[in-house]
Simulated scan of single mutants.
Amino acid sequence: MLTVKLPQLLNVHQMPRVFWEDGIMSGYRHPKSTALDCLLSSFQMTNETVNIWTHFLPTCFAHTFSSMSAHARHICYFLDYGALSLYSLGCAFTYGAYVMPDRWVNSILHRYYVPIAAFNTFICTGLSCYSRFLEVDRPVLSKVLRTVAFVHPFVFDNIPLFYRLLFCYGEGCNWNEAIPLHLYHLFFAFWTGFLFASHLPERLAPGRFDYIGHSHQLFHICAVMGTHFQMEAVLTDQLSRKAWLSLYYETDSLAITLGVAATSVIGNVMLICFFTATLLWSPQANSILQNNIPGEAKVKEH
């Protein structure tokens, strides 16, 4: 009978410091896993399994292959951050087209909204990638920078929506059937950010949520739910405002839209390449590349 030997799992004290997660005590994959081991671990209960299967976009990057080495871990997350940055630009495209309050349509803010969002992708990717170099020596600053990197484009993208919900009254404020869906999106977005920053509940009971229920899993689930309601809200706004927008909205050409998207993609790829090169060749990266396993000789190789 054909049998498959699943990769060995380790506890936190058998892992290099760079792989430690707050409050997660067991279920770690070997930090020198092969690509096959990483794929097999997707079908094994580890502390990353739910993360892998609930990851919204870059499933094959940030979690699946992050246990191959310290280098692989950081590079996988660099790619993850780039993908999330480009997602924020996609949000800006749709919000600029369909969520902008009537009274802001064709305003100066509206005209520069997407270009600013494209610039924000560089801030998001640059800050979040840089934060990984501080992860071991200055973990608090690393977490703050990474949180700011993702909160900043979220807040900017949602300025039109915040205005509609909080400060806009009467005609031109677009109070339509999309508003409840936007509120659901913001509700899940709040919990996404809170779970990412707080590491709850595993901080309160280390070891109890190693496999099911830790913050990163809940963070993924809230992010997916929030994105679902975000898409539904944008589609509802698009349908309800289509006639008015066709008369008053000066849409960008396809060439301009593709040009902004391509510039952002190329710029983010260059940033990721820069940080990857720094990781591989800079002596200053040594502190986050310590891949020695405590008591490695005692750990059975797999």
Rank of each mutant, 00 (worst) to 15 (best):
F196P: 03
S88Y: 07
H13F: 07
L141C: 03
M15A: 05
Y98K: 01
Y184K: 11
S107E: 03
W20H: 15
V224F: 13
G27V: 08
M225W: 12
L2V: 14
A297H: 14
S264F: 03
Y87T: 03
M45F: 14
T257W: 06
E135L: 02
S198G: 05
H220M: 14
V136Q: 10
L109Y: 10
G90S: 04
L10Q: 07
P101A: 13
Y211C: 08
A189F: 08
G170E: 14
N51E: 12
T278V: 03
L218I: 15
G96E: 02
M45I: 15
R73S: 01
W281E: 02
A72M: 12
G23C: 15
T263I: 07
A178P: 03
G96I: 04
F190Q: 10
V155K: 05
K300Q: 11
F167V: 04
T94D: 08
N120D: 13
G126Y: 00
T34M: 07
L218C: 09
Y130M: 03
E135A: 13
D252N: 09
I108S: 14
F275L: 02
P7V: 12
Q230R: 09
A70N: 01
A262Q: 14
A197I: 04
F274V: 04
V148N: 04
G172A: 02
H216E: 11
L141P: 01
S264A: 15
L289T: 09
L280Y: 14
M45S: 09
E202G: 07
V18H: 00
T251V: 08
E48T: 09
V144D: 01
I24Y: 08
V265A: 12
V18L: 08
S142N: 00
V136P: 00
S107D: 10
